[in-house]
Simulated assay, not measured.
Amino acid sequence: MDEHQLGKRQSLSQQMTLNRDREFLQQLKADYCQILLRYFNNDNTVKQQIDRFINVAFDAKVPVPQIIEIHMELIDEFSKQLKLEGRNDEVLLDYRLTLIDILAHLCEIYRTSMS
């Protein structure tokens, strides 16, 4: 195999990895969105969704800043939608509790994995 073919193969492999990473992050964002939508609705399944989300994020070694970025992107999207509907977006401040809950669970998993 010459250098040109090797370079093409490495480039293709990197592109496949980037696509997989993007798909993974999109799914993680979709899962987080579902958590946000159900967090204050007395939905008993939200705790299970949080546990699944945390386990996936932990297993994939998703950095905490990435989770915060996902949260902020979704809150921004929600805010824009509320403004388009002529509604106040102050209610979104309460969703910081969701982020705190997620990060607390993730920290607990990190803590227990180190012992």
Rank of each mutant, 00 (worst) to 15 (best):
L36C: 15
L36A: 13
L36E: 08
L36V: 04
L37C: 12
L37M: 12
R38D: 10
Y39P: 01
Y39T: 05
F40S: 08
N41P: 00
N41M: 11
N41F: 03
N42Y: 09
D43N: 14
D43S: 07
T45L: 09
T45C: 00
T45P: 00
T45S: 12
V46Q: 03
K47P: 00
K47S: 11
K47M: 06
K47Y: 07
K47G: 06
Q48K: 06
Q49A: 12
Q49C: 05
I50P: 06
I50R: 05
I50V: 13
D51E: 14
D51Y: 07
R52F: 06
F53K: 05
F53W: 03
I54G: 08
N55W: 00
N55A: 06
N55F: 04
N55G: 10
N55R: 10
V56T: 15
V56D: 09
A57H: 02
A57K: 02
A57S: 15
F58W: 06
F58E: 04
F58Y: 13
D59E: 12
D59L: 06
A60R: 07
A60G: 00
K61Y: 08
K61T: 03
K61I: 04
P63G: 00
P63Q: 02
P63M: 00
V64C: 03
V64K: 12
V64R: 10
Q66S: 14
Q66G: 03
I67Y: 07
I67P: 09
I68V: 14
I68Q: 13
E69Q: 15
E69S: 14
E69A: 14
E69P: 00
E69R: 15
I70C: 07
I70F: 07
H71R: 07
H71F: 04
M72H: 13
M72A: 15
E73V: 06
E73I: 05
L74A: 15
I75Q: 11
D76A: 13
D76T: 13
D76V: 04
F78Y: 12
F78E: 09
S79E: 15
S79M: 08
S79F: 03
K80Q: 10
Q81L: 12
Q81D: 12
Q81C: 08
L82N: 09
L82Q: 10
K83S: 09
K83W: 06
K83H: 12
L84G: 11
E85H: 13
E85K: 15
R87P: 01
R87A: 13
R87K: 15
N88W: 05
E90L: 12
E90F: 10
E90W: 03
E90I: 07
E90Y: 07
V91S: 13
V91H: 03
V91W: 00
V91E: 09
V91N: 07
L92V: 10
L92F: 04
L92S: 05
L93V: 08
L93S: 11
L93C: 04
L93I: 09
D94N: 14
Y95Q: 04
L97S: 14
T98S: 14
T98G: 11
T98W: 00
L99Y: 03
I100K: 13
I100R: 13
I100C: 02
I100Y: 10
I100H: 09
D101L: 01
I102D: 02
I102T: 11
I102L: 01
L103Q: 08
A104T: 14
H105E: 14
H105G: 06
H105V: 02
L106W: 01
